[in-house]
Amino acid sequence: MKVRIKFAKYGTVRFIGHLDVMRYFQKAIRRAGIDVAYSEGFSPHQIMSFAAPLSVGHTSEGEYFDLEVNSFTDSKDFKKKLQSVMVEGIEILDVQPLEQGAKNAMASVAAAAYLVSFRDETILPALWKEALLDFYAKPEIPVIKKTKKGEKEINLKESIYDLEIRTGISKKGQETVPENEIYLLLNAESGENIKPVFVLETFFQTLSFELPPFSLLIHRLETMQNMGTQEERRLVPLLWEK
């Protein structure tokens, strides 16, 4: 059977890349003594599926992976076992068994919500907040997106499901509370994924302002699935109370 695990990643471990996070969990699952299922064949491996890779340097409180297990007693016990072998900065938030035939984490991803703040707001152009809201209010934002196959022109507006400017909140593993934060809800479907950096770079280009390198602090709030239709989305977290 499949179990879905939700975790947070913050503090120093934000510099661990996606593949290494997967390796980390493979070893953690062994340490926790979880009755994990292995694939058949010459080199058996744990059957796991990660929802959406998180870029190096970003923090998150909405990461997910699915794990195939041979037995499962209860969520609380599983969560406790796994949490007991975590390093500082990786926290198990929730564990739920999945229904038979449920789509795996990776295939379920439709969108991701982010909070973006600036390392140093003083360097930003004046009135950037107003300009950002104007930018989002435009009906069309044509951009060139680089893909594996080359470049294609897309309407970025269609992939930004929401954009707000919020007052900053404190987050685990972060020393300071930012003054302002940009809330972004972005398309994260396989092949359609939009990174928050891309949105903000595009925006600042319209102001002819080049964002200094590494000036964004990006925090993923949630990874979502679409319970509605393509036309009328109903986005809910990958684990949610029905």
């Binding site: 120093t12 900065g89 020393e175 590494f214």
Partner: peptide, 24 residues
């Protein structure tokens, strides 16, 4: 959570920043 000796800007520039963060 301890502070890191290297600023984020530096860790983001170098190859394999996980070499320098400890906490394993």
């Amino acid at each position: 959570m301890g502070r890191l000796a290297l600023k984020d800007e530096i860790l983001m520039q170098v190859e394999k920043p996980a070499r320098y963060i400890g906490n394993e």
